[in-house]
Design a protein around this nucleic acid. Structure first.
Lengths: 136, 136
DNA sequence: CCATGTTTGACAACGATTCTCATTGCGAGT
DNA sequence: ACTCGCAATGAGAATCGTTGTCAAACATGG
């Protein structure tokens, strides 16, 4: 348990060909992609990487905070390169339209609440559901 | 579209024994439960209902807006009856210990945020994860 | 160049959810 | 009350994303 020396890109992992391939797939895409999509993309491109390896790598990167992971409506995990600020989703119950919102107040409140009860290493999820203008 | 005769509980569906059982399981529980938990609960209680039926019923209720559905961190779908009391959960990642917390500030913030984007009929879910004092 | 602990990949195992389809039962019409 | 049609059910198979297994391929420090 000696590390946290390797800072950015490769959360202290060996820079293997496969990991670099996954990283580059993430780097060259804007939005969220599923593990399988990344696996397919790499295969198509020639840098074939085992599916299990893609999953493992994405997990590591997510743990290390190098990528954001969220879930589609049907439970599939999707990833995108991080660095983006933490935000929440405002989702329309009817058409699914989503707006990303941020709120320092909420971040502060959750931390305070956790601290008050002695919880450390806090994270949270917040989803807001409503009916958007067009669906009312 | 003639209805609202069958008011609340049963979104216009036939009030079968099974659907009533699922509805009651939701009614008597505060928080979120997975389909399987509901299935188990009903089984234990004697009102055995097929697992597929539990899934189907929950889907219908969710579509009808009678229950809220969200996803756990590992992608499992969990449900709770709609318009639940306004409290949130502070969950220990390690031992699972849960504290219920309330926050008018958050309620206000989510409403404001929704209003700002033109969303009506707002609800939200907030879960805080951390490591509790005993598990640190 | 060698030893050693990592990482990989093919495939099996898993768990949640959905599908299939024969059977059941609600409820409208007579 | 009796019957008929169609929605609803349940048991198990089928899907699908994801994780586990384990021997073989590797990277890195000595």
């Amino acid at each position: 348990m000696t590390n946290t020396d390797q800072p950015t890109d490769q959360a202290g992992l060996r820079p293997t060909k496969q990991r670099l391939a996954v990283a580059s797939a993430l780097a060259e895409t804007e939005g969220f992609q599923s593990a399988q999509e990344i696996h397919d993309l790499l295969g198509r491109r020639g840098d074939s990487v085992g599916l299990a390896t893609v999953y493992r790598t994405l997990q590591r990167l997510a743990e290390a905070g190098d990528v954001d992971m969220m879930r589609t409506e049907d439970g599939e995990a999707i990833y995108r390169r991080c660095s983006d600020s933490h935000h929440h989703h405002l989702v329309c119950r009817t058409c699914g339209r989503t707006v990303e919102v941020e709120g320092p107040a909420v971040e502060r409140w959750t931390s305070a609440m956790a601290a008050e009860h002695g919880y450390a290493d806090v994270s949270h999820t917040l989803e807001i559901f409503g009916t958007c203008r067009d669906c009312q």
